[in-house]
Write a protein that binds this DNA or RNA. Structure first.
Lengths: 157, 157
DNA sequence: ATAAAAGTTGAAGTCAACTTCAAGTCAAGC
DNA sequence: GCTTGACTTGAAGTTGACTTCAACTTTTAT
């Protein structure tokens, strides 16, 4: 398959494919300068990459999921750790959702006077809640996507 | 309070405080060149900023939560929309966790032969799962934090 | 045969939220 | 009065995952 075929079938952009190749996540059968040709298995690889990203793995971590010959070899401890991590994240998000929903209907004239809101604030500042990141521009949908909190404190220094 | 006092009490770094001030999220009583003095209410502001960040709002969005005079004025529709968004995210994360847990114990010699894993892959590639971001270095904990998927497709353009 | 479309490369740009740096200012203790 | 140490500023650097650009080369269609 040529690159445009892979783009069509995978939904991954050509520049991302080239980037993945440079980073060692996928391979193509190519002499430099000529056009890339991909084996059909690249689609499976891209699927695993997408899965890994959705689960919160970095590209470096995802690369470890492939053996040098290109087959899949998941580190089960790594996977389980990520699942645990996601679970903790979900718990925090759930209390966050509850708090936000309350804030949206709270009858108190000022949120600073509402006990539930105070509790939310304390949960956000003390304890485990931390930085988050967010993506760039999105398209013409009404509701905008966003990123989500990470766990764990950053070092001051 | 001077800046070091705010750093101590809030846990927010001095450079972040200056950054927030430049971005218009907090205010200080200062003639340029001299040292910043913060009113005690800055701590409440910082708490709200931390909450907003944990919920996935950008700094620009968080700025909208403050009126020009510095009091809090939450847009309830915005809050409710964010709660909905987090809820969708949680649902996706939950199926992701389930899939990961399965992958970690799956008896199939190759994941590509496991039907549950196939299903996970399909869920990750087709449909709503998208890019994610992740934070920088973290401290000496065993398990590493990470970011999480966002919703919504980016334009090919 | 040739023009346009599609592909190639390395380098630089993007985004958000900060951090780090360099160079200078100010304040407090001895 | 002078050395620290805390603070100030604007500018530039960081991170991850890409995208965009400029300048070419290669196919494909006419």
């Amino acid at each position: 398959m040529d690159i445009s075929e892979v783009v069509k079938r995978s939904g991954v952009s050509a520049s991302a494919l080239r980037y993945y190749e440079r980073r060692g996540l996928i391979r193509s059968l190519t002499d430099t300068g000529t056009r890339r040709r991909f084996a059909p298995t690249v689609l499976d690889h891209l699927a695993l990459i997408a899965l890994g990203q959705a689960a919160g793995f970095s590209l470096d971590e995802i690369r470890l999921m492939f053996t040098p010959d290109g087959s899949v070899a998941l580190d089960r401890n790594m996977i389980a750790a990520k699942a645990d991590e996601l679970e903790r994240l979900v718990k925090r998000l759930e209390s966050m959702i509850e708090g936000l929903r309350h804030a949206a209907v709270c009858p108190a004239p000022r949120h600073s006077e509402c006990p539930s809101f105070q509790k939310l604030l304390r949960a956000a500042t003390s304890g485990a809640l931390e930085r988050r990141e967010r993506s760039g521009k999105d398209e013409a949908q009404v509701s905008r996507p966003s990123g989500v909190a990470t766990i764990g404190r950053r070092k001051a220094r």
